[in-house]
Amino acid sequence: MVQNRPFFTVLVHLTLILGVLVVALPIYVTFIASTQAPSDVLRAPIPMTMGDRLVENYSGVLGRGSMQASSGPVAPMMLNSLIMALGIAIGKIAISLLSAFAIVYFRFPGRMLAFWTIFITLMLPVEVRILPTYEVMATLGLLNSYTGLIVPLIASATATFLFRQFFMTVPDELVEAARVDAAGPLRFFWDILLPLSRTNIAALFVILFIYGWNQYLWPLLITTDQSMYTIVMAIQRMVVAADNEPEWHFITAVAILALIPPVVVVVLMQRLFVKGLVETEK
């Protein structure tokens, strides 16, 4: 603060509190609705204080799923989402570390070609090549499998660039020292480079976990078997429950369950999250 202006300070806090409230409103109302009995949710206006069916609704959603949309239990979907998110995060980090290491620490024919091939993936999000990618998946027999959910999404220009930038800042003296001690490239990578990259890896992991958990179009395309659904893509099936009024007390509970893991990750690892966010955009 540069100046002391009491009136202005009050205004600042009022605006911020209003902002926080508007941002939180959807979650609050949704959570409240997810603790109500079905009949209470269907009557406008819905109550603004918690109902008494918290445990009942959530255990119903996790174990049994919605009745009308016959969606199946949500617990296995959350497990699928978790496997997918972890697979994507770990896979992306692993292959990006390796390729960034190759590009920065070696000179070899085709180096620039490899660099540009990776760079191009930045420009080709799934959304712009939906049908042909689906055909590739079908040909390879990867529909309805974890491999299909994870592997195609782990190529990443962003992560490769991040590690490339970071490796560039690692002092050359470390390589020289390693060579004096007769350590080969893999030994250097494992014993020196990886420990130095720890913070970057953690920051990237937070971002990629959220990215993986929140995938929507990809699981929608390649899963037709209910046992492979992820929670984020399954929710639209419950919303579009034909003819009937959607079962809002169930859907709201599913929405809360779907957003808790990534939100908890962001709130608990805020520092790493901000670091990851800022660095992946550089």
């Binding site: 390796l98 190759a102 490899a114 990776i118």
Partner: peptide, 26 residues
């Protein structure tokens, strides 16, 4: 980088997974 490693096939092996996925799925 001023100082680099020399190896005949290692850099290609390191790049292989990333490039394979990029070619097949992108």
């Amino acid at each position: 980088k001023r100082v680099v490693f020399r190896h005949r096939w290692l850099p290609y092996a390191l790049l292989a997974p990333q490039l394979a996925i990029t070619l097949v799925f992108f």
